[in-house]
Amino acid sequence: MDARLRRVNKEIADCKNDKASGIKIELIDESPFHLKGIFPGPEGTPYAGGTFLVDIIIPESYPFQPVKMKFITKVYHPNVSSASGAICLDILKDAWSPVLTLKSTLISLQSLLCSPEPNDPQDAEVAKHFTTSKGSFEDTATYWTQIYAGGPGKKGVSTASSGDGKDEVAMAGLEKAHVDQFEALGFQRGKVIDVLRRLNYRGKNVTQISEDRVVEELLK
């Protein structure tokens, strides 16, 4: 049997036998080289209570070349692209070792959720949010966990969300009062959210960004 296949089969079997870690690996289609990883969000973080799905592609030269992983579940985290789910993690690149397994890599992803590295960001906007106001960042990450990963959400927050169940202001990590303020000037709500998010109009930054500057961006 092909060495790569033997190794992957064993990895999948080992993972099945290990119930304690909470990590699961499932087939997506017939191919044993395109898999889905599933792990719970770590306790004591904004991701707690959520279930995170990871797309796994095992390259031809696995395990000598790193496995390719990206989040299927949307995650609000400085080292994960909020748009594509791409992950910035050293072991998925230069620091990969053939000794690492799918399970150990998924555990590393889990611990990446515990300890963001904003200095080596995958998503610059999220990283800025994280560094300027950690509290607000955590609220947003919690909200994303609730919306996308089936998390419990923050008590007393966002339960009022209506329609499709998503509060765009909370999704963007902004404050409703700020969005309302610029919307009242006659700008479209979506555009206001977009601009404020890009300008990182949060926390102490709010006092540093003049209203004119925001309007200037809105007029572009």
């Binding site: 072991i91 620091a95 070792s97 690492l100």
Partner: peptide, 8 residues
């Protein structure tokens, strides 16, 4: 070419 062990 580094050792195959993790972190080595």
């Amino acid at each position: 070419i580094r050792c195959m062990a993790e972190g080595c």
